[in-house]
Nucleic acid binder design. Structure first.
Lengths: 195, 195
DNA sequence: TCATATAGACAGACTTGTCTGTCCTAAAAT
DNA sequence: ATTTTAGGACAGACAAGTCTGTCTATATGA
């Protein structure tokens, strides 16, 4: 039950933080929506900042889980790599999409908040590791250096697809990123047959 | 003199908004740094929101001017297109860099603030137009459709370079974006000679 | 009975924006 | 040449509201 309450707080805060922003969401709004008392919230989290860290973790864990699942449902090979990007299409269309919570949160906190920045960087690293693993699995003919380069490229394409589809309120940046990635994968094939 | 004061206000606000964030920068901080009275500020801008619009315009105009200059100093051809991206290297290293003010501002305002969102989209469109013009000038052998596609790709690479170098606090996303663009341009050359 | 939930008052520090009244400078009118 | 007039900037108090986080006092459930 204590865990239930904690999970409920995180879930509620996560919804509001992501939808309306971290600074624009007050503690009072969170407890009202969760139907709990303020003292209850502060018994689980010693500050709003701590709740923010939990929010970032919850979002990132959830994303990683879903995107892994999405990719595993694709056939082996390029499809799985492209899966990282086309995962964004239904996400964007779901209406729950509101850009990258990491970038949005960084935009809202003071410059010297190391704690939150560290958490975000560490979570992005986990995401990067996931992509690298996916590349290794599906492009094991490539050298390590080329695998790493491809992973980085998929990562930046993913990030720009997220940020720009959000800003433009349009699907085109996602589609263009996918298209670009397909080009890259085709180039790798050509380079291979050329050798 | 009136124009000087107005310019001073915008410059001061621009510095603080970009460095510390829009919501975290108070009117009192702006007037203290600018050395002006509150009534003076409010005689030039009827609200903080209006000052925000002026800040976005000032930043975007400045950027466009500088990036145009940077590209014009490059030799005609691919170099000018790559210029859009390698412009970011000295910017990042200058210490004045703090990510994309548009995305950061969007992250801070309420969801339903159409005014600021409209301004940002309109300024991004101007930036896109600039890239399209640059592509037309330097890739006039391409069809219009291919020019438009290339422009979009440069745009998303630019945006991801900005966002990710900021988030990662590292130059690698910029360098990787440049590298990716060079690949794309090489592909276009190969496709041309192949035909 | 005892832990834990509740509602909500409260402190204290912020926020934006308004308003009053003073001062200075420069142009216009005498 | 001297006086008047007007515009802008000034300092700073103030209203009205926001925020986080603490605390008290009551209720509920094991």
């Amino acid at each position: 039950m204590k865990n239930d309450t904690r999970a409920l707080i995180i879930e509620t805060a996560s919804e509001l933080f992501y939808k309306n922003g971290y600074n624009l969401t007050g503690i009072n709004e969170i407890i009202a929506k969760a139907g709990i008392a303020k003292a209850t919230l502060y018994s689980h989290f010693k500050s709003k900042e701590e709740l923010c860290l939990a929010y970032l973790d919850a979002r990132d864990n959830d994303l990683l889980k879903n995107i892994k699942e999405h990719c595993q449902n694709k056939s082996k090979g390029d499809k799985q790599l492209i899966g990282v990007l086309d995962f964004l299409i239904p996400f964007f269309q779901s209406g729950a999409f509101n850009g990258c919570w990491c970038i949005r949160t960084v935009a809202e906190i003071p410059r010297d908040n190391k704690l939150i920045k560290k958490k975000i960087k560490s979570n992005k690293k986990l995401f990067m590791n996931f992509i690298e693993g996916l590349v290794r699995e599906n492009k094991n003919e490539l050298t390590k250096a080329k695998q790493s380069k491809l992973a980085k490229r998929i990562y930046i394409l993913y990030e720009s697809a997220v940020s720009e589809s959000h800003l433009q309120e349009d699907l085109w940046p996602i589609e263009e990123s996918i298209d670009l990635l397909k080009n890259l994968l085709k180039d790798l094939k050509q380079a291979k047959t050329a050798n």
